[in-house]
Design a protein around this nucleic acid. Sequence first.
DNA 1: TTCTCTGCAAACGCTTTGCACGGAT
DNA 2: ATCCGTGCAAAGCGTTTGCAGAGAA
Lengths: 145, 145
Amino acid sequence: MMQNMPVNDLKSVLEQKGIYPSYHRIKILKYLIEHRTHPSVDMIYKDLAKEIPTLSKTTIYNTLKLFVKKGLTISIDFEGETRYDIFIEPHAHFKCVKCGRIYDLPLRTDLCQNVELNGHSPLSYQIVIKGICKHCLEAEGENAS
Amino acid sequence: MMQNMPVNDLKSVLEQKGIYPSYHRIKILKYLIEHRTHPSVDMIYKDLAKEIPTLSKTTIYNTLKLFVKKGLTISIDFEGETRYDIFIEPHAHFKCVKCGRIYDLPLRTDLCQNVELNGHSPLSYQIVIKGICKHCLEAEGENAS
DNA sequence: TTCTCTGCAAACGCTTTGCACGGAT
DNA sequence: ATCCGTGCAAAGCGTTTGCAGAGAA
């Protein structure tokens, strides 16, 4: 998980996107890079508040909205909760209905080649697959034997 | 839009899925068949409340949850709002960012053939594409000329 | 009677908004 | 002095829950 990207690199990632690299924004970007678990605002808040006791959720909402707007992050809607991901190349998401984990899945061909667009012009897409993840399937197998 | 399915046919659709065909449930099913606009609870409520003044949103929530559970309907999550659709064959959804309309799009091959599942076992999926719909593109063209 | 469908009101969870403080330029 | 990042509190919105009353079997 840990990628130990130097703070100066994080700063330049933000600056290249036209985002002022404040202390909080660097921390949130660092969190997204080090926790590739598609965290919600609440998850980020609970973890970062340990380091930054004065942190507010509003700041995280503001920051992620800015990151999405600037194309640094994507947002994914799961039943009533928004999750965030810095991996912006096209891919699908798999959500395990047992453990709740979310995985990235590569696409063999771009989605738009697989859909009949009927004249509509796509800008972005999101694919969410629900099911039982490999991890839980293996756990089931162990219990059965 | 109107398909004028006889009430007895609507009843048997429900009964075949093991759903008691109450007055409200028939009305909601009828609405879903006649309005293939991926309505939200609120849209259904606003329309049906004209005919059934005592109708409550809770009943619509209960009914749609039951329909989804029994496999009669699918639910799609759009930014913080759930939409419902009786078209249960696999397909993608296109949401226009200008007019908000939602379209069904056919898939050329099943999604799961296009994704590397990495050992996870899928149960269901949803694909949402955002962009500008044909209708709005044509309207833009007219304004430009 | 018993079970379930219905509906009101309150609670709930996630997100947004309004406004004020404070730091940076 | 101005702009912008931050944070508290309140409001907003979609949804769920608890409970009571009505209706069907």
